[in-house]
Amino acid sequence: MSTLPPMSTGALASRRVSRRRFVGGSLAIAVAMPAVGRPAFAAGSLNVYNWDTYIGQDTVANFSDETGTNVRYDLYAGNDELFAKLREGNPGYDVIFPSNDYLERMVVADMVQKLDHSKIPNMSNLAPRFLEAKFDPGREHSLSYFWGTQGVGYRTTAVDGVESWSLLFDSEELSGRKSLLTDVAVLQTAMKYLGFSANSTDPAEIQQAIDLLIRAKPTIQSFAPDTGQDLLISGEVDLAMEYSGDIMQVMEEDDELSYAVPQEGAILWEDVMAIPTGAPNVENAHAFINYILTPEVHAEIAEEVQYACPNQAAVELLPEDQRNNPVIYPSEEVLDRCEFKIYMGEETEGLYAQGMTRVLAS
């Protein structure tokens, strides 16, 4: 990833770019902004490290104006980049936004510190289900930012609906018109299709999923690094495994597109706000997390990024068509079929990573 100057709020202008994309938005910002030197991390300010295109256009500027806090806002492209950046020691960040399984991994590695809930009274705005989490008991280290599903975006003129993952993993139908993601969640979704847990630690079950994907590979047009929504809207594919919010964005541009969570279920994810170990501005970090959880602030961000908001008070402020949209907020019946990816230990995580490498190389 390119070295970026401190991010200006003007660079946060609304655009259709996945918040999980590994290239694109960050590089575009680097080109658009002046080639100025980067100040060192400053005490008495706030240093935020977040995914690209994953905050409201004015959120950072408004926080700065209201609190008088100078904010440095840096971008990363994925959880691996975040983890690698902080693994050798925090260079000075105060607030980070890892996904749930990486939060677990960072807790085990002592890379995040416990939150002081007394300094985050707005956490009471979270829906009850988000005040507890298996990946962070008691919410000691994190509070929820956004959540969603991985499912299938599809073109309704090519297929009536997507009832099963078999259309992507085990069918010649629409051969060459399908795309999958490149990360290990594809392998874990294949596990669910086979009737196993997405978090199985059984090498034999993992191997069955690897074999399934290798057999399916000739029918797949592309393993896309979170650009399946672009392949879908451009007409290059008719089925794309993608994140719900990304497909929601292109559905707004093309009324022939839709999204489904197949009957076997899918991967649930939750991105969280946490304070890394060694943060120089802990008080400001708590203040920023509390600010995000203000209903009006969180609602404004949710309306822009179109991912599911865990803030119950914020959801009530959203436009009716957004808060009642089943693509963004799936029914309990759908959620019961889904599974959070959990951290399974380095050995098992390695098996999944090696398995996905084999699939991509086959």
Rank of each mutant, 00 (worst) to 15 (best):
P5S: 13
P6R: 15
T9D: 14
G10D: 14
S14R: 15
R15Q: 15
R15H: 11
R15K: 13
S18L: 02
G25W: 08
S26Y: 00
I29N: 11
I29D: 09
A30H: 09
V31N: 04
V31E: 11
V36D: 01
R38E: 05
P39Q: 01
A42Y: 04
A43K: 11
L46V: 06
V48T: 11
Y49A: 08
Q57R: 06
D58K: 11
V60E: 05
G68T: 04
V71Q: 04
L75Q: 05
A77E: 10
N79F: 05
L86M: 02
N90H: 05
P91Q: 13
D94Y: 02
V95S: 05
F97H: 10
Y102T: 12
R105D: 01
M106I: 07
V108N: 10
M111Q: 12
M111S: 07
M123N: 08
M123S: 14
F130H: 12
D136K: 09
G138V: 00
R139C: 14
H141Y: 15
L143S: 03
S144D: 01
V152H: 11
V152E: 05
Y154L: 09
W165L: 07
S166I: 01
L167S: 04
L167A: 05
F169W: 11
L174N: 05
S175M: 01
R177D: 01
R177G: 07
R177A: 05
L181D: 13
V186C: 10
L187Y: 10
A190C: 06
M191G: 11
P203H: 05
Q207H: 04
Q207R: 15
L213F: 14
A216N: 08
K217R: 14
P218S: 07
Q221I: 02
E236F: 10
M241E: 15
E242V: 06
D246Y: 13
V250T: 13
E252L: 14
E253K: 13
S258I: 03
Y259E: 10
P262V: 07
E264W: 10
E270W: 03
E270N: 14
D271K: 14
D271T: 11
M273D: 01
P276R: 01
T277F: 15
A285E: 06
H286R: 03
A287V: 06
I289F: 06
N290Y: 07
P295T: 02
V297M: 03
E300T: 06
E303D: 12
V305G: 03
A308G: 09
L318T: 08
Q322L: 15
R323N: 03
R323H: 03
E332I: 12
V334H: 06
D336C: 02
E339T: 08
Y343I: 00
E347M: 12
L351N: 00
L351M: 15
Y352Q: 12
G355R: 02
M356A: 03
R358T: 15
R358Q: 15
